[in-house]
Amino acid sequence: MTLLCVTANAAIDKRYHLPRVRVGAVQRIAQVHADAGGKGINAARAARLHGAAVVASGFCGGFAGQFIASRLRDLGVRDAFVPVAGESRTCLNIIDAAGVSTELLEPGAPVDAADVDRLRSRFAELLGQVDAVTISGSTPAGCPDDLYADLVSSARSAGLPVVLDAGGAPFARALGARPSVVKPNRDELAAWRGRRLDSRDDVIAAARALRDAGPESVVVSLGSEGALAVTAGRTVLAHAPVVAVSNAVGCGDVLVGVLAAGLAEGLDVVAALRPAVAAAAAAAAHPRTGVFDPQLAASFEVPVTTVEES
């Protein structure tokens, strides 16, 4: 099985560890870790750790882009990025001694119409070489709002399952192209719905409404509660294992990568959800963003409760 993981707005993810964050003061960082990042790259890394072959595409530019591509190649992920003139972004995750995380996300260098056309062409060329697709994260300035809709439509026309994990106008425009799965978290689902989701019933109702907008299935990541899946046949809750959380950033991306790997194997969404939730829990226990121990993930039991059948 081979996945194509698209990250339009790739990044260098830097993680800073310091005793506490003091606004307006000079501070020295105790530890610094840098890695290739962006939601789709985290998904690609997770799928690779899960055992899938992975091709990564999107936009990469400058020295930062070279670093991102080299880190992925070190993992055995094939580099199919479209090079652009600007410098790929850097995103910061600042973690204090209490484990509180503060993220600073750069917008990314803008791209032009020619760059977008090259990405569309590269994507179309790769579809015949893969078994499933993930499309994740934000788009840089210069991308049309219908880019993800076009990519989803192309992949679906090629008979491939597509997992979409994005937000804003690119996400909304892509719903009508009927992605196989969309994967918001609770806050993203609330933003799409335009209201607070205070209870599990609120989350279920919003997820059903989102599914009615076009996607075949909706998977909502709920952190320590696990993940809710709304499909054509039923609504289920996959319960997350209890772990000592080290770094929760990127766990939803891990879920996407392993879920898509399951779809590439021919599993249905509910069957693919169990190892995906296990991997996301193992990622929360790992200090690095979007990384997990496959043996730990395989040791977890993930009970699934049926909420409703139709």
Rank of each mutant, 00 (worst) to 15 (best):
R208S: 04
A209T: 13
A209Y: 00
A209S: 14
A209E: 15
L210R: 10
R211K: 15
D212A: 15
G214A: 13
G214M: 14
P215S: 01
S217L: 05
V218H: 13
V218Q: 11
V218N: 06
V219I: 06
V219N: 12
V220N: 10
S221G: 05
S221P: 00
S221M: 02
G223R: 03
G223E: 09
G223W: 07
G223A: 14
E225V: 10
G226F: 11
A227P: 02
A227F: 02
L228T: 03
L228N: 02
V230S: 08
V230T: 07
V230P: 00
T231Q: 04
T231R: 08
A232R: 15
G233C: 04
G233D: 13
T235E: 14
T235V: 15
T235A: 06
T235G: 07
V236I: 06
V236D: 08
V236A: 10
V236L: 11
A238P: 00
A238V: 03
H239F: 00
H239K: 13
A240Y: 11
A240C: 03
P241Q: 15
V242Q: 14
V242N: 05
V242I: 09
V243E: 06
V243W: 04
A244N: 13
A244D: 15
V245G: 09
S246Q: 15
S246E: 14
N247G: 08
N247S: 06
N247Q: 07
N247T: 03
A248W: 00
A248N: 10
A248H: 06
V249I: 15
G250E: 01
G250Y: 01
G250Q: 01
C251T: 14
C251K: 02
C251A: 15
G252M: 01
D253G: 07
D253T: 08
D253H: 13
D253P: 13
V254E: 05
L255V: 03
L255C: 09
V256L: 02
V256W: 09
V256H: 12
V256I: 09
V258M: 12
L259I: 06
L259M: 09
L259K: 05
A261R: 02
A261W: 05
L263I: 04
A264F: 05
A264E: 12
E265P: 00
E265A: 14
E265K: 13
G266N: 10
G266E: 03
L267Y: 08
L267Q: 14
D268P: 06
D268L: 14
D268H: 09
D268C: 06
V269T: 14
V269G: 04
V270F: 10
A271C: 11
A271S: 14
A272I: 02
L273R: 12
L273A: 01
P275G: 01
P275K: 00
A276I: 08
A279G: 05
A279L: 08
A279M: 07
A280G: 07
A280S: 13
